[in-house]
C-alpha cells in the first residue's frame, strides 16, 4: 500500500478507495477459487482408506465373528493364513507356515503364543521367534478393517 501511495499519486480520495476495494475483492475471490481447486486436489491425492490399489484384499470374516484373543487359520490362494484377534481388539495376520520346516502353526490363547506342532517353534503375537528352531519371524500380512469386515491384503 505504501508502495502504491508513493508511485501512483491519487487525484482524489473516492476513486482511490473504490479501486482498492475492487482490487481487494478481485484478489480475494481469485484466491478463494484457487483454494477451491487446491483443496480437492489434495483430497484426491490422499489415497482412500482401503488397501493399496493393485494389492488384492480378501475378506476373512466380520469383526464380531472373532472373539477376543482368538485366531483362525484361513486359506488364501491355497496358502494358510493365521488371522489373530488380539486382546485389545486389533487384528494381525501371518502366513501360517513355520519358518523352520513349513508346518502350519496355530494359536495358543492360554499362552498368547503362536506355536508350531512339529518341532516346538514358538512365536509371539508380533510374529517374532520366542523359542525353538525357526530361523526367522513369521511373514506378516497387512490387515484392514473396513465397515466391520476384516480383510487380509496379499501383495
Amino acid at each position: 500500500m505504501t508502495d502504491d501511495a508513493r508511485t501512483v499519486p491519487a487525484p482524489d480520495a473516492t476513486p482511490m478507495a473504490r479501486r482498492t476495494l475492487l482490487d481487494l475483492a478481485v484478489g480475494a475471490t481469485a484466491s478463494g477459487v484457487g483454494l477451491l481447486v487446491l483443496l480437492p486436489a489434495v483430497r484426491f491425492a490422499t489415497p482412500p482408506a482401503q488397501p493399496t490399489p493393485g494389492a488384492r484384499g480378501s475378506v476373512v470374516g466380520r469383526r464380531e465373528e472373532f472373539g477376543e484373543n482368538t485366531a483362525r487359520v484361513v486359506s488364501l490362494d491355497g496358502e494358510p493364513v493365521l488371522v489373530l484377534a488380539l486382546p485389545g481388539g486389533d487384528f494381525r495376520a501371518f502366513v501360517a507356515r513355520c519358518t523352520h520346516l513349513g508346518c502350519v502353526v496355530s494359536y495358543n490363547p492360554a499362552r498368547e503364543q503362536i506355536e508350531c506342532p512339529c518341532h516346538g517353534g514358538r512365536f509371539g503375537c508380533d510374529g517374532r521367534v520366542l523359542a525353538g528352531p525357526p530361523p526367522s519371524a513369521l511373514r506378516e500380512l497387512p490387515v484392514v478393517v473396513r465397515r466391520d469386515e476384516v480383510m487380509v491384503v496379499r501383495g
Binding site: 475492487l22 482490487d23 475483492a25 478481485v26 475471490t29 481469485a30 478463494g32 477459487v33 477451491l36
Partner: peptide
Amino acid sequence: PPLAILAALLLLK
C-alpha cells in the same frame, strides 16, 4: 458461483 462472481468482478474492473 464464486467463479461467476470472479468473472463479474473482473468485468467491473
